[in-house]
Simulated scan of single mutants.
Amino acid sequence: MLAVLCPGQGAQTPGMLTPWLEIESVAQTLHALSDATEVDLIAHGTTSDADTIRDTAIAQPLLVATAIATGREALAGAAPGLVAGHSVGEFGAAALSGVLSDADAMSLVTVRGRAMADAAAAAEPTSMAAVLGGDAEEVASLLAQLGLTPANANGGGQVVAAGAKSAIEALVAAPPARARVIELQVAGAFHTSYMEPAVQALAAAAQDVVRHQPSATLLSNADGAPVASGDDALSRLVTQVANPVRWDLCMERMLELGVTGILEVAPGGVLTGLAKRGMKGVSAVALKTPDDLPAARELLEAHA
């Protein structure tokens, strides 16, 4: 079975859309997606610098549009067996699985990005940090002592902590034994209670959105479970903003369901890297540039 995966915030890089715009079909899709959002996707994906596209309100629509456009190009009409996305990548996954139209996915993620940026700005200074390695129980104990939330459980010994910036700085200064801590360049403590105002804004925007049954198995970041319906998928997309991402459980579920191949759509690399540690033996292709499309289609033929 082939799983199509959509990366989350932090995967974006300056100029990442430039080579993709040379493919007419991808360019047409990106222009159409740009019309569905308030963000100039083409400009931000080609000429904006790293600081500009780090802005949550820009990064999130840009990532979802890139996932949708490159995913559709790679699949070329074929249906994946399973689709999942990490954090904001869930919106790209919802579109590729048919739960949301491309335009609705873009409209909602635009609200999400802006609302999360606003929630971060309104709160006390907050931040996030990746904790790599260390004993799992010791890491969890230290995070609890510091009042931090394990906002992303990514598997392979990687946890992303989130909370007050002062607590993150304390974690960086005195990491758990045998662990490395890297503070992330993000606007605030995503996937924690600090994001509750963003949940409310997204819920209001989602009320009248048409949702459909997924055409492929769609996994939820909440617990790695397949969503039961379009209503269930949309509800989980809304509440996930203020709740931890359990990517470790998503990888476990993929193995349980018989996934043998992974295609990570652009800007690929992060999730296939996690899969090398958490899903050993599963074939994987990460779409970084159009040069990766032949390998992606070979993967599709072998595992779809």
Rank of each mutant, 00 (worst) to 15 (best):
residue 65 A to K: 07
residue 6 C to E: 01
residue 90 E to A: 13
residue 49 D to P: 01
residue 207 Q to V: 13
residue 131 V to M: 06
residue 99 V to P: 01
residue 149 T to P: 05
residue 167 A to T: 04
residue 219 L to I: 06
residue 259 V to I: 09
residue 223 D to I: 03
residue 131 V to L: 04
residue 217 T to P: 00
residue 44 H to L: 11
residue 257 L to Y: 00
residue 244 P to T: 11
residue 45 G to F: 01
residue 220 S to R: 08
residue 191 H to F: 11
residue 222 A to V: 14
residue 109 V to F: 02
residue 86 H to N: 12
residue 209 V to H: 05
residue 50 A to M: 11
residue 69 A to R: 09
residue 171 L to S: 03
residue 163 G to L: 01
residue 301 E to L: 14
residue 23 I to Y: 01
residue 148 L to G: 02
residue 245 V to S: 06
residue 246 R to T: 03
residue 263 L to D: 06
residue 7 P to W: 08
residue 46 T to D: 12
residue 89 G to M: 05
residue 279 M to S: 07
residue 237 L to D: 06
residue 289 T to K: 12
residue 100 L to F: 10
residue 102 D to Q: 12
residue 126 T to I: 01
residue 218 L to R: 03
residue 164 A to L: 13
residue 5 L to V: 15
residue 147 G to T: 01
residue 124 E to C: 00
residue 300 L to W: 05
residue 19 P to I: 11
residue 40 D to R: 08
residue 85 G to Q: 09
residue 186 V to L: 13
residue 176 P to V: 02
residue 68 I to G: 05
residue 228 A to G: 13
residue 264 E to N: 10
residue 129 A to E: 04
residue 41 L to S: 12
residue 101 S to P: 05
residue 265 V to T: 15
residue 160 V to G: 09
residue 126 T to E: 10
residue 38 E to D: 15
residue 143 L to I: 02
residue 285 V to H: 05
residue 171 L to C: 02
residue 269 G to H: 09
residue 110 T to D: 15
residue 192 T to Q: 09
residue 261 G to Q: 04
residue 259 V to P: 03
residue 84 A to W: 03
residue 227 V to L: 07
residue 207 Q to H: 12
residue 249 L to E: 13
residue 304 A to K: 01
residue 92 G to I: 02
residue 200 Q to G: 14
residue 261 G to R: 07
residue 61 P to G: 10
residue 284 A to F: 02
residue 203 A to I: 05
residue 186 V to E: 04
residue 85 G to H: 07
residue 97 S to C: 14
residue 275 A to V: 04
residue 68 I to Y: 11
residue 202 L to S: 05
residue 160 V to R: 09
residue 97 S to Q: 07
residue 101 S to G: 15
residue 112 R to Y: 11
residue 295 A to V: 05
residue 242 A to P: 09
residue 108 L to R: 04
residue 304 A to N: 15
residue 125 P to Y: 11
residue 297 R to K: 13
residue 262 I to Q: 03
residue 199 V to P: 01
residue 271 L to H: 07
residue 39 V to G: 04
residue 178 R to N: 15
residue 75 L to H: 08
residue 180 R to L: 12
residue 135 D to W: 03
residue 1 M to P: 13
residue 14 P to S: 10
residue 167 A to K: 00
residue 178 R to P: 00
residue 49 D to R: 00
